[in-house]
Nucleic acid binder design. Structure first.
Lengths: 127, 127
DNA sequence: GTAAACAGTTTACGTCTGTAAACGCATCGG
DNA sequence: CCGATGCGTTTACAGACGTAAACTGTTTAC
C-alpha cells in the first residue's frame, strides 16, 4: 500500500482516531493544512478506491476506518526510504538519524536497551 | 532538492563515482535496472535542468558532476520521511528501524557510542 | 568522406498527485 | 414542502514521474 505524502496525512489522522467521519477529517485537515473540503473528499475517495480505507454506513452515518495496518505501511515506507537514500543499509541511516535528532534521556535509554537486546541476540545466534 | 525514486538511483551512482560520463551511467543503470539508454538520458537531462547535476564539456567530452551535496539531500529526505511517517518524531522511527534491521556487533557498538556521546551532551546542556 | 555510434535536446504519453469544482442524492430545519 | 447542508461521486487540470522514441549535431571508424 504505497501512500503519497498527502495520503499519509489523512491516514495518520484516521489511524489516530478511528472510526472517523468525513466532517471530522475535513475539519481537522482543513484548518491544519489549509485543504478545501473538496480536496479532503477526493483524498478519502481515492484512499477507499485503493483499499487503504474502508467505509461503513452505519444507519445513515458514514464512517471511515483504516483497511490497512499502520505498521505495515510504516514498514513499507521505511524499507523504501532505506532503499532509496541509503542503499538499503540500515546502519548508516540510524547513525544519521541519531546524529541529527534531538533525543531525550529516556529515549536514549530506551534505544540503548534495544541495542543491548540485539547484541545478546547476535551472540546467541553465533553460539 | 526533492529527488524522486529514479533520480536517487542516478544520483547515488554519480555521487559514488564523480565525474561520470553518460555512457557509464547508461551502462551501469541499463544492466542493473533494465532502463533503456533513452530513459537514462532523460533522467540526466532532468537532473541537470533541476540543478542537481552539472555538466562540463571538457574538451569534447561531457562529464556529469553532482551540483548538490549528498548530505543535503539525505538530510532533506530523512526529514521528509520522519515527517510523513512518524509525525516528525525521531525516537519512534529509530526504535522501529533498530527493531526491524539486522545489525552487526560493530554497528551496534558504533551506535551505542553515539548514544553515549549524546547522553553526555544532554547532561552538559542541563548543567 | 560517408556511415555508424554517441551525446544532448525535443517530444510523447500514460499514470500518479495535489488541488478543487460540479453534480446528485439524502436529510434536516423551518 | 423547500431550500440549505452534508456526503459520496464525477470530472478537471496542471505538474511530476517513469519510460522511451525521434531528432540533431558531432565524432569516429572504415
Amino acid at each position: 500500500m504505497q501512500l503519497s505524502d498527502a495520503e499519509w496525512i489523512v491516514m495518520n489522522l484516521i489511524w489516530d482516531s478511528q472510526p472517523t467521519e468525513a466532517s471530522e477529517v475535513i475539519a481537522a485537515l482543513g484548518s491544519e493544512n489549509g485543504w478545501s473540503g473538496a480536496t479532503v473528499k477526493t483524498m478519502l475517495h481515492r484512499l477507499v478506491k485503493k483499499g487503504a480505507l474502508h467505509t461503513e454506513s452505519v444507519g445513515k452515518k458514514y464512517r471511515y476506518t483504516a483497511a490497512v495496518r499502520r505498521s505495515d505501511c510504516v514498514r513499507r515506507a521505511s524499507r523504501s526510504f532505506l532503499e532509496r537514500v541509503f542503499g538499503g543499509d540500515a546502519a548508516p541511516a540510524l547513525l544519521h538519524l541519531v546524529r541529527t535528532s534531538k533525543l531525550s534521556d529516556s529515549e536514549l535509554a530506551e534505544l540503548r536497551e534495544l541495542l543491548d537486546a540485539k547484541s545478546s541476540k547476535n551472540k546467541e545466534s553465533k553460539e
